[in-house]
Simulated scan of single mutants.
Amino acid sequence: MRQLAKFAISVREEDFVLHLVDEAGEATDFATSPEQLDAVIDALDELLAENEEDLFEIDEDGPTYQKPLG
């Protein structure tokens, strides 16, 4: 399975472009409607909320979340 290295989202006239780059530098672009992009964001938000304690360390000084590196 390829590992996501970076991503970008750009706005076009009537839709968005989701630009994904893997660790080897191979890039793939996807045209996406606002509704599709919103569905992806909602799905990621739900997944992260369900697994928040396992994925993030909570900073004791406040509600800042930090994802461990590595």
Rank of each mutant, 00 (worst) to 15 (best):
A31H: 03
L18V: 04
A43M: 05
E60M: 14
Q66G: 13
A24D: 05
L20A: 04
G70D: 07
A31V: 09
V11M: 06
I9W: 06
T28V: 13
I41A: 12
V21L: 08
A31L: 08
K67V: 07
A43T: 04
V17D: 00
D59K: 14
R2H: 14
A5P: 01
E23S: 15
A49P: 04
G62N: 09
D59G: 08
D61M: 13
E26V: 15
F30A: 03
Q36V: 10
P63C: 05
D45Y: 11
D61I: 12
G25Q: 00
K6E: 02
E50F: 07
D61A: 15
A5W: 06
L44S: 05
L20E: 00
R2F: 15
E52W: 12
H19L: 01
E46K: 00
P34T: 02
T28E: 04
L69F: 13
D15S: 14
E52P: 07
D61K: 11
P34V: 02
Y65I: 06
E57D: 09
V11N: 05
E23N: 15
A43R: 11
Q66L: 14
R2Q: 09
R12C: 13
D38H: 09
I58V: 13
D61S: 15
A8R: 03
Q3F: 04
R2Y: 14
A39R: 04
K67W: 00
A49Q: 03
V11S: 07
M1W: 07
K6C: 09
V21S: 03
D45L: 06
A5L: 06
D22N: 12
A24C: 12
L69V: 15
